[in-house]
């Protein structure tokens, strides 16, 4: 069992675990942010460089630091490795640059975008980004297209994380979309106007870290912070049927997968649950979802407190490690 130290916290992890997953095992603020890595999708990661960390000591046998910052999502740990994330000013500086690069072609249309309020890139640029950009070039512009009758693609907003391509590869039986062209001009598209109609294709909406792929059935209906997220389930033959429903009063505006603390869905859901079951009678509602108090969605959001946090509020907060 290799022993790895991340930001002065030591943990034993299994052989072959990546630094990012070791940090997620510790949890809390030391987890590097990830825009392209998705633990449920094989082969994802290594593209966005957001999760860069500094390795101050490669291993117990070779105590030299690694020459460059490494992508923590694709670097396996070694015994005695010492990693710096929050404690390294070098990492903070690099991440600032990464955010600037991710925003090079990303339009600032958050007031229009449906993802605003639950967008990974918004959180990332709020946490690490700068107010200014150094470039004067115009951003790439693409027309907004429909891929299938339920999904809208805003190629302008795409940061080319490839997550949706992995979803198409690993979840659906026939891949109908992918990345066309290379480098600066690469774009997501379907094969000559083809519609994406697989049963699990809706999951590309959930895995998209930005608002490039959005749900057409909930398009512009409301902002996420006016909706109440609830855990709900139903008996579904195709998927586990455990979802989060986003309610406005008694109406269901949107159905998504349940996202965990790292912004990844717990279970992929099928298109029937996502797009067609919008009546409250279709679902068994379990209760309100936990929303981090820092999130804009937590405004007017109430949930039952755990007993421990009533007895000792400070310890309760610390255990949650938001």
């Amino acid at each position: 069992m290799p022993k790895v130290t991340i930001d002065n916290i030591t943990i034993d992890v299994e052989e072959g675990t990546t630094i990012l997953n070791a940090a997620r095992k510790i949890g809390g603020r030391i987890v590097p942010p990830a825009m392209c890595y998705y633990s449920k999708l094989k082969g994802s990661g290594g593209k966005c460089r957001t999760c860069l960390v500094k390795v101050a000591q490669s291993s117990a046998k070779d105590p030299r630091p690694m020459p460059k910052l490494v992508a923590s999502c694709s670097t396996p740990v070694q015994d005695g490795m010492v990693v710096q994330n929050l404690t390294s000013p070098e990492v903070a500086e690099a991440r600032k640059g990464i955010v600037e690069f991710l925003l090079l072609n990303h339009p600032l249309d958050c007031p229009v975008c449906d993802q605003a309020g639950e967008c990974d890139l918004q959180d990332l640029s709020f946490g690490y980004g700068m107010e200014e950009t150094a470039t004067e070039d115009d951003r790439r512009e693409f027309p907004v297209i429909d891929i299938g009758d339920k999904i809208k693609l805003h190629m302008n907003r795409c940061i080319l994380c490839y997550r949706c391509v992995y979803v198409a590869d690993q979840l659906t039986d026939k891949r109908l979309h992918g990345i066309l062209y290379r480098g600066d001009v690469s774009e997501i598209s379907t094969f000559i106007g083809n519609a994406v109609t697989n049963d699990f294709s809706g999951n590309m909406i959930d895995v998209c870290p930005v608002g490039a792929l959005t749900d057409k059935t909930a398009r512009f209906k409301s902002r996420v912070w006016f909706l109440k997220p609830m855990d709900a389930h139903r008996a579904c033959g195709k998927c586990p049927g455990k979802v989060a429903i986003w309610m406005f009063g008694n109406e269901i505006y949107r159905v998504t997968g349940r996202k965990d603390q790292f912004g990844e869905v717990e279970e992929f859901i099928c298109n029937e649950c996502r797009f067609e079951k919008k009546e409250p009678g279709d679902w068994v509602i379990e209760g309100p979802r936990h929303i981090k108090r820092q999130s804009v969605i937590s405004a007017n959001h109430y949930e039952e407190m755990k007993k421990q946090s009533i007895i000792d509020p400070i310890a309760g907060e610390m255990n949650k490690q938001e």
Partner: peptide, 22 residues
């Protein structure tokens, strides 16, 4: 106005409501 809802979420009196359209 693009109906982004930031005025409504900032409003301490909850006086603002809106419905967006494309």
């Amino acid at each position: 106005c693009t109906s982004c809802g930031l005025c409504a979420v900032a409003c301490p009196a909850e006086a603002i409501t809106m419905v967006s359209a494309e």
